[in-house]
Design a binder for these strands. Structure first.
Lengths: 112, 112
DNA sequence: TTTACATACATAGTATTCTTATGTATGTAA
DNA sequence: TTACATACATAAGAATACTATGTATGTAAA
């Protein structure tokens, strides 16, 4: 998933779900580019991590898909299901708690 | 490591190194209790995660050990080596960047 | 007194996650 | 025709943490 960064392990599902909560629908490659641009290239989301994660979220009923052909290339769009919309809220709260606890454990004041 | 919290994966080494940068020396069980108290019980560090991590950090030359018997029980104290002291600085900077990027990706403002 | 819990270490087997490598396929720029 | 970008996917392997188990001592409760 990253440039020598083990830290993101476990955060991928939350990242995907949150991006989809802001964008209605996105396709895989679009997600990789979005993550890259948001982090200014610091986090590179690999296909080997992304696609299995998307399939797993779909299998869990959190995502729904629709396939389109654009410019003669296949695109598989993902969108939050109703369950997915509810789950984003939980995942984001967990992420807040996680960051809070990590900052406590590492003596890091929030950077602002 | 956690109560239904996958997010901490990859952060354990940094947490250990940082605790040892504040405490000169600590033993394993003490570390588990410190983590528990700092996070108010939200993060429970399991032995199956802690001890292999300590052994790995020692093998990497970042930690040095000294064994003592206290109250008829064995204690294996860990302390940062010179390399370890240098590495904490790097790890903490990586953690800051990680938190920064994660907050960007999740639209989380720093909580203060 | 024996059961449970806390202290203190350790490891084997398993599950999960991510990386690396590879594969298919189209389009564009050098 | 080579390289790169777009777009999907999976298999093999590495890394990390969890569960379960084991050893051993001390204390409190039932």
């Amino acid at each position: 998933m990253a440039i020598s960064n083990e830290l993101f392990k476990g955060t991928l599902q939350t990242i995907i779900l949150n991006l989809l909560s802001e964008n209605d629908r996105m396709y895989g490659y679009e997600i990789t580019q979005k993550v890259k641009s948001i982090t200014q290239g610091e986090l590179l989301l690999k296909e080997g991590a992304l696609y299995p994660a998307l399939h797993k979220l779909e299998a869990a009923g959190l995502l729904e898909t629709s396939t389109e052909v654009v410019d003669n290339r296949l695109r598989k769009y993902y969108a939050l299901s109703q369950d997915g919309k509810a789950e984003v809220v939980n995942k984001l709260q967990e992420a807040r708690d996680f960051i809070q606890n990590l900052q406590l454990l590492l003596n890091l004041k929030p950077s602002y």
